[in-house]
Amino acid sequence: MTLIMNTETVVIKSRQKTTIGRDLIGIGAILIVAVLGYLLFPDNLALLTRIIAIALLVLSLDLVTGYCGVATLGHAALFGSGAYAAGIAAAHYGITSPVLMTLAGILGGAIAGLICGVIILRAHGLPQLVLSISLIYLFHEFANKASSWTGGSDGLSGISPDPLFGAYEFDLWGQTAYIFGVALLLVVFVLLRFLVRSPFGMLCRGIKEDPLRIMAMGASPKIALIKMYIISGAVAGVGGALNAISTQVVGLDSLSFTQSAEALVMLVLGGTGSLFGALMGTVVFMLFEDYVSAANPFHWLTMVGVLLIAVVLFAPKGLYGTAAGFIARRMEKRS
């Protein structure tokens, strides 16, 4: 018995070591990519900052779709709510400190996450999907009509964030916004790595596999999923706030169905159920979009369609999943 216990603790310890190693590799990879982006595209930091904001949205979508198995086509509702919360705080209440604006975004996103979670989780399958689509349209219409608060279809302008920590101004080149974004992404990434490995994260994965069994074990799938939705809303809210701070305007497109669908495409392209996959999918998709829509805007939608069909047919685990599987097989062969 003690022998078994011993080997088990050894296994757990070595597993902890490898996961912490992977965390460090992940942080290192994000930093390297961030520095590379800064060096390669110094004139296009706005695009890179937008990629980070969208990456936060895709990470948050991964939490509910990849880890909990909830298929949703309305996740931009959380992102847009965060963006509008940060924007309204700055434009109407004079809260212009970037950190406070980010907190406002987190709060707005979390509240939207609570509302969406409570409604979406009432149904399963197709009705669930339709609920998510209806919600995003409802949010969109609401933001459009409440134009005294949101600026309607003109967008919410008049957001001028203070210098970060009173020292670093958000200038035209977007250096501060970019570094602020990278820092936010790193913090969120580390926190999420802890979250998905925690007992709560495991519970959510269990719900994805078999909700009935989780209920038999005495846990409530619904409450866990709603909690996850709130966390996911907070993450999306960070992205929304970052977008509001860096572009200094919030448009209705941040609450659109198209944005939700694109986020889902990015997630699946990278691979669901893995934070690395979400990041990789976002970067590849956004750079591809930037390149193709500049080169040939007419065929952009067709390309995305073909890309989607190809991913479903040939790489159902996404880019990261397929690559990771390939590397794992190679390692196995060698050992």
Partner: peptide
């Protein structure tokens, strides 16, 4: 044929991909 019985997410992605293609082609 390939997505009968597949998980919902797969079906959503495949059919949304087909929709995007048809829209792009119709537009062209």
């Amino acid at each position: 044929r390939r997505i009968y019985g597949a998980p919902e997410l797969t079906q959503v992605l495949m059919t949304i991909g087909i929709t995007f293609c048809i829209i792009g082609i119709a537009n062209y």
